[in-house]
């Protein structure tokens, strides 16, 4: 790849121990992430999709070290983040920021918007005379005015709050922005405003996004590449157009088929994915998708597939699609 990777994730594993295991002898463990490898290239938008419990949110947090991974490495801008501790890590946080799903609960309820916005600046010892010019400029850029500064979060609408969250994340001029379902709590018409804003900002500032969402149409609109996750595994990753037009992995296919779209009417027929997502406490052997996979064969229960190229810029972890392409 000619462009430089901003984030390099290798062999990332995250296990959450469940409480109360000692009575039954064995401690039960949730395998939230299992051996994740991916790069986020400088200046790109990498979309991460999957259903609840697939680990996409955990992956975003593990990259930022908001949750410490159990194993593996995360390199960001030349630093091995998993090795950083205390103040060094806190200083590094200026360069990687996150925007959460629900803006009302991600801003402190008893602090004014201005107090929330000055916090990153004071924390990172920005000279005081730079605070207000920076805040004013960014508030204007995200489409808010100084009249919003002395309000409390509950006095603003969801869309306005999400603009504040974005402004706060950008105050320190980060290189990486993790967007964790930033539009899921918003109405469609407001969602469009926020997506446009994110798209413009990225072009103007040259930001890199990790865009996490369950909404395929939003991810498709904004992302250069898409990664698909299922039950703690990355099952497919590749260029957006390729994934949307020619998905390799059977799960990706099912996911694309399940999204309700305006202008389509398939609920009469549609061979849909049956059953439910298995528990990540005791994930299925072999390929984790084999219990629901419409094309599973004997091999899928026994050995675990790894990501292999299925196209020019497309990789999938499936025994059967690999066989097909060869």
């Amino acid at each position: 790849m000619d462009k430089q990777a901003l984030v390099t994730v290798r062999g990332l594993v995250k296990h959450f121990p469940l409480p109360g295991g000692w009575l039954s002898g064995k401690r039960r463990i949730v395998q939230a992430l299992d051996n994740i490898n991916l790069d986020i290239v400088q200046g790109e938008v990498l979309g991460l999709v999957g259903e609840s419990g697939c680990g996409k949110t955990t992956l975003g947090r593990c990259i930022l070290q908001l949750i410490r991974p159990t194993e593996g490495s995360v390199q960001f801008d030349g630093d091995e983040l998993t090795q950083l501790r205390g103040d060094t890590l806190r200083r590094k946080r200026a360069h990687m920021q996150i925007v959460f799903q629900n803006p009302l609960v991600s801003l402190s309820p008893r602090r004014t918007i201005q107090q929330s916005l000055t916090e990153p600046l004071s924390t990172h010892h920005m000279p005081r005379e730079e605070w207000m010019p920076r805040i004013d400029a960014l508030m204007q850029r995200v489409g808010l005015g100084i009249q919003h500064l002395d309000r409390y979060p509950h006095e603003l609408s969801g869309g306005q709050l999400q603009r504040v969250s974005i402004a706060r994340a950008l105050l320190l001029e980060p290189k990486l922005l993790v967007l964790d379902e930033p539009t899921s709590a918003l109405d469609v018409s407001v969602q469009a405003q926020i997506i446009n804003l994110l798209d413009e900002l990225r072009r103007e500032i040259g930001l890199t996004y990790l865009f996490i969402s369950h909404d395929l149409s939003v991810v498709e609109h904004l992302s250069d590449r898409i990664g698909v996750m299922y039950l703690g595994k990355l099952v497919e990753i590749g260029n957006t157009e390729q994934i949307m037009k020619q998905p390799s992995h059977p799960y990706t296919k099912a996911l694309l088929q399940s999204v309700p779209r305006v202008g389509s009417r398939r609920m009469h027929e549609a061979p849909l994915l049956e059953g439910n997502v298995p528990s990540p406490i005791n994930p299925p052997s072999g390929c984790r998708f084999h219990t629901r996979c419409p094309i599973a064969e004997a091999i899928c229960q026994q050995s675990e597939p790894i990501l292999e190229a299925t196209g020019a810029a497309q990789w999938a972890a499936c025994h059967l699609t690999i066989k097909e392409t060869l």
Binding site: V188, Q193, S217, V218, H221, M244, V262
Partner: peptide, 20 residues
């Protein structure tokens, strides 16, 4: 406006029509 605000494959790369 509501219909135009939904991201659809066709408009990739363009701004969405938001309702102000």
């Amino acid at each position: 406006g509501l219909l135009a605000a939904i991201p659809q494959s066709a408009q990739k790369g363009q701004a969405l029509q938001a309702i102000a």
